[in-house]
Structure formats: structure tokens, C-alpha cells
């Protein structure tokens, strides 16, 4: 199979996934106990209001018809209006989601930058002091809740030392990046731990493989053997894990944004839940799931590029 064929097949696989996402998001509000109208209006809603909402959202129609309406609306970019902010949900998401994506991207880069070199050190010093210390530190990192770590970093490096701002999104892109440094580190640590652990094991598997010994027997430099022969093969499974971890990272972003008062999609999600703003919750859930499935696509392509056996 050629690379374009693989790409086409992988894009085709996106279709059922997107349909499944739509079904789940649709079911979220409608199939859970209680009728959606009173869920939106609260328990003491007047009958007249309930009827109005039912008409407005089509809640009085049969479920399949409702789903049809829902899909048509989503495809035309209409995700309804926020009940509390009175603006289109699509517009809210377009404003807030980029901040969350930026935060997640920074966190992903930081975690890779931490995990790769430390995994090498740990794997090459296997069962010695450096390995034990790196693994111990990451084991603690793995058990540390995002909001707790965030609070500590915020207090120490924000409030106490004053190196970083204590919250918000700043003014302009550069200031935004500056404001996102601490949150991104907070978010990155547990992913770095997961990746480090996986990559360390993969490197240990690969480093005594025949093809690495063969590469050494060719008289290549140690660094070339490590980068071209060891790292590239070890990364294949780590890239898959990285893709699967994006969802966790976005979930962590919801909490991190709350801790650092960053006005991103995560903060919007929490605020909307508190304010019972269901159209926003629904729209955000949909947007985040689509984002994750696109990330899966990207990491699959990256994996296929690393490992020619997948796409050919």
C-alpha cells in the first residue's frame, strides 16, 4: 500500500468515528434522566417555558428526527446559543478553544522535551542511581493531581518568587505565551512521566537488538547509533501512546485553566456546568472530541512515517 492510499484509508476511518462522536454528544443531554427542557430551565420552570424550549430545540419531536436536526445544525456550524451568555456557542468556542489548544501544544512539547533525554539517561544507566532517581521522581509526578501541582507552582514561582504571572491570559501573543508557561509545565509533568516510562522500556528493548549491534559493527558513532537506530525504533510505540494521551492532556487542561484562571475552553466548560449552560457543554464536548480524533490522525501519520511497515 502506498502512502497516499494509507492516507485515504485513514481519512475514511475518520467518518464512522465522527458519526459516533455525534451520537454520543447528542445522547448526552437527551437520554439521561429528566427532560432536557427542565434541565436547561431548572427545576422550578413554568410549563409554558418548558413548552417554548421544547419547540425551540425540537425536544417534542421523535428522537431520530431530533438527531437529524442536530446533525444538520452541527454540519452548518450552528451549535445553538449559550443560555447564560446569550451568544452563539460556535462563536464562544472559536474564541476560547485556541487558547486551550496553545496550552496543550506547549504542554505536549515540554513533556516530549523532558521525556526523551531522561528516558535515554534512565535506560542507558539502567538499575543504577540516575535511573532510580529519574523513575522515582516521575513516579511521584504520576501520582500528583494537576490542580495540586498547579497550585504549588503558582504559589512558589508566581506569588512567592514573582517569576511568572499568577493567572489570566495577558495582553497579546507573547504575553499570552508567558502566562501559559507555568500552566503548561503543570500539565506536562504527568504526560512526561507516562512517556518517559514507555520510552525507557522501549529503549531497553531496542538497545541490544541485532540491528543495533549490526549498526555498531559498522563503526558508526555512538550518537548516530542512538539517534538513528535506537531512538527511531523506540519512538514508534511511544508516538502511539502520545496520541492516546492527548485526551488526558485536554482533560487536564480543563482543570489547569481553572487553577490558573485562564479563559480557555476548559474554564468555559467548568463555568458552563456551574451555570447549567447545556448548549455550551454539548458544543465543547463535541469540539474537544473532534480535536482528539484529528490528533489521532496526525499521530497515526507520524507513526506511519517512522515505521514504513505500517503504510506500505
Amino acid at each position: 500500500m502506498s502512502t497516499p492510499e494509507y492516507l485515504a484509508r485513514r481519512l475514511l476511518q475518520l467518518v464512522p468515528t465522527l458519526i459516533a462522536i455525534l451520537v454520543v454528544v447528542f445522547a448526552l443531554v437527551r437520554l439521561l434522566p429528566g427532560d432536557p427542557a427542565s434541565a436547561i430551565l431548572g427545576d422550578r420552570a413554568l410549563d409554558a417555558d418548558v413548552e417554548r424550549i421544547n419547540r425551540e430545540y425540537g425536544f417534542d419531536r421523535p428522537i431520530p428526527v431530533q438527531f437529524g436536526i442536530f446533525v444538520r445544525q452541527v454540519l452548518t456550524g450552528d451549535l445553538g446559543d449559550s443560555t447564560s451568555l446569550k451568544v452563539p456557542v460556535a462563536q464562544l468556542i472559536a474564541e476560547r478553544l485556541p487558547i486551550t489548544m496553545l496550552l496543550t501544544l506547549m504542554a505536549a512539547l515540554i513533556s516530549v522535551a523532558l521525556a526523551v533525554p531522561l528516558a535515554f539517561v534512565a535506560a542507558l544507566c539502567r538499575d543504577r542511581l540516575a535511573d532510580g532517581m529519574i523513575r522515582g521522581a516521575f513516579q511521584v509526578g504520576l501520582s500528583m493531581p494537576v490542580f495540586y501541582l498547579g497550585l504549588i507552582l503558582l504559589t512558589v514561582f508566581g506569588a512567592r518568587l514573582g517569576w511568572f504571572p499568577v493567572g489570566g491570559d495577558g495582553d497579546g501573543l507573547l504575553d499570552l505565551l508567558y502566562h501559559l508557561v507555568l500552566p503548561a509545565i503543570t500539565l506536562a509533568l504527568s504526560l512526561a512521566a507516562v512517556l518517559m516510562r514507555n520510552l525507557r522500556a522501549a529503549i531497553i528493548d531496542v538497545v541490544d537488538a541485532d540491528y543495533v549491534t549490526f549498526a555498531r559493527s559498522k563503526g558508526l558513532r555512538g550518537s548516530l547509533v542512538l539517534l538513528r537506530h535506537v531512538l527511531r525504533n523506540a519512538l514508534i510505540s511511544t508516538v502511539a501512546l502520545f496520541g492516546l494521551s492527548i485526551g488526558t492532556l485536554l482533560g487536564g487542561a480543563v482543570v489547569t485553566e481553572t487553577v490558573f484562571a485562564i479563559p480557555g475552553a476548559g474554564r468555559l466548560m467548568v463555568d458552563s456546568i456551574t451555570g447549567r449552560d447545556y448548549p455550551v457543554v454539548q458544543g465543547l464536548t463535541l469540539a474537544l472530541a473532534v480535536l482528539v480524533s484529528l490528533t489521532f490522525l496526525l499521530t497515526d501519520l507520524l507513526q506511519a512515517w517512522l515505521d514504513p511497515r505500517i503504510a506500505r
Binding site: D210, Y211, F214, R228, R232, D307, P308, R309
Partner: peptide, 13 residues
């Protein structure tokens, strides 16, 4: 080496 399958790096041309 004995096993050309494992002695050649699978991900490099």
C-alpha cells in the same frame, strides 16, 4: 549476523 530480518534496521531503507 544470523538473522537478516532482525539485523537490518526495519525502519530504514
Amino acid at each position: 549476523f544470523q538473522e537478516p530480518m532482525t539485523a537490518l534496521n526495519p525502519v530504514l531503507p
